[in-house]
Structure formats: structure tokens, C-alpha cells
Simulated scan of single mutants.
Amino acid sequence: MKVLVTNDDGIFAPGIQALVEVLQHFADVYVSCPDQERSAISHSITLRVPLKAKPLALFPGAKGCWAVNGTPADCVKLGIEVLMKEPPDFVISGINLGPNLGRDLYYSGTMAGAVEGLLYGIPSVAVSLNAFSDMDINYEKVKKLFYPILEVLLQNKIPKGVFLNVNLPYLSKEICKGIRIVPPDMKVSRYSYVGLNDPHGLVYYWLKDQLHHMKDFENDSDFLLLRTGFVTISPIEFRTFHKRKQEQIERWFAHLNFASTDEEEIDYA
């Protein structure tokens, strides 16, 4: 089995090293990561700047490792199309510093790495950790928690058109309360703008993460379950077309007939 790994924290982030070390027990690992942090960059790709993939010997035992001056989506796309001789059997994005919950799936570069794999029909997973400072994290504890979860993920077939968003509590395996399969809580707005005055009296705005101050979640919220000690896994489906919606919208325009020859042509010049 061949697994392509990426992240949005950058190739030197401790989370990617922990992920590679766990994965090497199960598969041949290839690493294609941004050369610097690309958090919250969503699914952007690089169009007007040439990409460079610099080979690095960062992870002993990895079959290939490249630092790319692009986004997580660039890294996965380049890895699949150019860097690897054959497409991977799996794409895993992470382990991200900080959870990705609810609406984060639209903003997160970690998520985008998994989605890019999904676009190629490759089973893909995004993995994030509910902790915020690398200086305080014992990644040995994280690896022991993630190992049995990864083993299950690799042994099973992820449904077609779906990627999995996994959030790990920063707890030992013995204390973790278990695993919950939940939808992302899209009703929660985690980030809000804070207005500040500059020295000239003009207002500028900064996005503030309210995660630590939020409460009153619903019982099945991924935010609440992760906070109370569960691993949360959300199967995310990205459908690009809805047949039933097509038929509904066709009815909106059924009365329009642009092929009619009874009306005079309109000159829009």
C-alpha cells in the first residue's frame, strides 16, 4: 500500500512527522507538503507562480519527500500527477495543529488536501488534533491514540465520493471516551471579526477564534463531543451535481423560449 501525506502546517511541523511515523507501520509513505504554513488557505491552487518540489531527507524510511512552494491542494495534485510513479492508494492530510470542525471544512487547507485526493477517486482522510501549541504536545501520546484508528481506516473501504474528517482529542488512549461518527455542526460560527483602531483612527478587522469561549452546543455537535473527550469522525460527501435539483430548476425556466421567431431581435450594441 502507498500513502501520500500532506498538511497545511508546513513540512517541518511535528504533526506530519508523527503521522509519517505511524503510517510507516502500515504502508510505503510519500510526503508532499507546503514549504511553509498554509493554514486556512482552503482549496486554492497556484496558477501564476511556477511550483518547485524540493526533495528532502526529513523522514527516515519515507519513499519520497518533497517541500513544495504551494498549497496543500498543489502538493497532492503534484504528488499524484508528477512526483509519484504510480497513484497512491490513500491520501492523508494532517496531523493538523488545532481541530477542524463544522464550517472549517470550507476554509481549512488540511481539508483541501483530502478533498484533492478525493477528486482523483483516491480514499482520503483529514486528521486534526485538539491542541494549539506544538511546544506543549507529547506526540507519542497522539500516535498511540491514532494508531488503532488508522489501522481500522486502512482496512476498510471508504465510500466512493466521501472523505473522512477525523478530529483527535489531546488525550491518552486510556482516557479517550471513544469514537463518534457525527455530522459537522454547520450552525456554529467559530470565527468572528474584532474591530481595532490603528494610530490614525481607522478601523481594521482581525478574525478571532472563539473556540475556547463557545458553549451551548447541541448534544451531537462535533464541537461538544471533541471537547468532552471523544474522537469525532465526519464522513463528508462532495457532490458536484444533483439530478433532482436539475429537474426542479428546469421547471423554473420552462416558460422561456429563446428559439421563438415571432419577436423582433433586440440590438444590445
Rank of each mutant, 00 (worst) to 15 (best):
A18V: 11
S124F: 05
Q248P: 00
V68P: 09
R244M: 04
A112H: 04
N100T: 12
K143S: 05
A126Q: 10
A126D: 04
V152N: 09
D220E: 15
S44H: 13
N257G: 00
L154I: 08
E174P: 05
L171W: 11
G195V: 10
P169I: 07
V29G: 08
M135N: 08
F241E: 13
K85T: 08
F132C: 00
C65Q: 14
E218L: 09
Q36D: 12
W66Q: 02
L153R: 02
L154D: 06
V188M: 08
F223M: 06
D89G: 15
L211P: 03
K77G: 05
V188A: 03
S42G: 10
F12V: 15
K141R: 14
Y170V: 01
I95L: 12
F253D: 05
Q36G: 05
K173R: 13
H242M: 04
I175L: 13
D216Y: 07
E116A: 10
S124N: 05
P60T: 00
N130L: 03
P235K: 02
N96F: 01
H43S: 15
L78Q: 12
V3A: 15
I149W: 06
P50I: 08
A40S: 11
P87S: 05
A269I: 00
L101A: 07
M214H: 00
S108N: 03
L153K: 02
A131G: 01
V125R: 01
I181K: 08
K208H: 10
K208N: 08
Y205K: 14
P60E: 06
E37C: 13
I92T: 09
D136G: 00
L23F: 12
A73I: 00
S133N: 15
I158M: 04
L196C: 00
K144M: 13
G10V: 02
L225I: 12
G178L: 02
I149Y: 03
I122E: 07
M84S: 05
E264R: 01
